[in-house]
Simulated assay, not measured.
Amino acid sequence: MAQIHPTALVDPAARLGDGVVVGPCTVIGPDVCIGAGTRVGAHCVIEGRTTIGVDNRIFQFNSIGAVPQDMSYGGEPTELVIGDRNTIREFCTFNTGTLKEEGVTRVGSDNWVMAYVHIAHDVRLGDHCVLANNATLAGHVHVGDWATIGGLSGVHQFVHIGAHAMIGFQGHVAQDVPPFMTVDGNPLAVRAVNLTGLRRRDFSAERITLIRQIHKLMYRSSLPLEQAMEQVAALRGSSPDSDADVQVMLDFVAGARRGLVR
């Protein structure tokens, strides 16, 4: 059974799984579903059509599932879906989606979300991401798995951030950030491959060598982007795991919506 503090206000229609803990003065609305083992701290508000998975840790003073900060929103029944085993620290704001996309804001699993993070409407956050204090994701931002976004960074609407990318401290991210790359500075620029992140995730030496070749072709060869990507495509088959990593980059560049950080 769920453990609900006597001062919490949980709507009878809310669905709470086994072992859910709800702290003092927290408010949970009727359309909320919280999976087993999730712990919600004090003074949180979880509202709207919000689904939260299992074994999450939501610290005190969070606003989860409020309507989007979008002036065109007209009260449509949009959603927020959060996966499993996420840590969400203090004073974060996660909003539901809009009908401009599928109507759902999606947060994956195993993410580490620090204090004062804002996840706006229609964001898609992957798995195993780290968002440092005060990171802000505007509407329709897509973030790949294992990405890291530094503190006080702002990500512009519709930007895509690739898997395993690293955004440095106070990044102003107005263009798409390719997978595997580290970016920082003002104006933002690609500095190098995210070697530390890749090594922590047990990328082999061969895979890292290939990704460094991709970086050199895209950012050190002086080739126009189209020609550089032709050279990247030609790297298929050069190492046992090369095809998957090459395809990740090709697909990302092909789908870029706001141009690439250069």
Rank of each mutant, 00 (worst) to 15 (best):
A115K: 00
L152A: 13
K100F: 11
A135Y: 03
F61V: 00
S153N: 02
G74T: 06
D110S: 10
F91Q: 14
V141G: 05
L131Y: 03
I119Q: 07
G150D: 03
F91G: 00
E90W: 06
I82P: 00
A147S: 11
D127T: 03
I149T: 01
T78L: 12
G126W: 04
G126A: 10
A66W: 00
W146R: 15
S153L: 03
A115R: 02
V113F: 08
A66I: 09
L99Q: 13
E90S: 05
H142P: 00
L137Q: 04
M71K: 10
H128N: 14
T87F: 11
I88H: 10
Q60L: 08
Q60D: 11
L125I: 04
Q69W: 09
A120W: 04
S109I: 07
N62H: 04
D110T: 01
T78S: 15
C129P: 01
R89V: 02
G151L: 08
D122K: 06
T93Q: 14
E102V: 07
R85K: 12
S72W: 04
A115H: 07
H140P: 05
D145H: 14
V141W: 06
T136M: 15
P68D: 07
D70I: 07
L152R: 05
E102A: 14
G74D: 05
C129K: 06
G83T: 06
N133G: 08
G103E: 10
V81L: 15
E102T: 12
V107H: 04
T148W: 12
K100M: 14
N95Y: 06
M71A: 09
S153H: 04
N62Q: 09
G144A: 13
T93H: 14
H128A: 02
S109M: 11
Y73G: 02
W112T: 01
E90C: 02
G151S: 12
S153P: 00
A120L: 09
H118A: 09
E90P: 00
T93A: 15
G103V: 07
H142F: 08
N133F: 06
V107D: 01
G108F: 11
Y116F: 15
T98I: 09
P77L: 12
R89Q: 04
E79I: 00
G97S: 09
S63W: 05
A135M: 07
N95C: 13
E90M: 05
D84G: 03
R124H: 14
H142I: 14
D84E: 12
G144K: 04
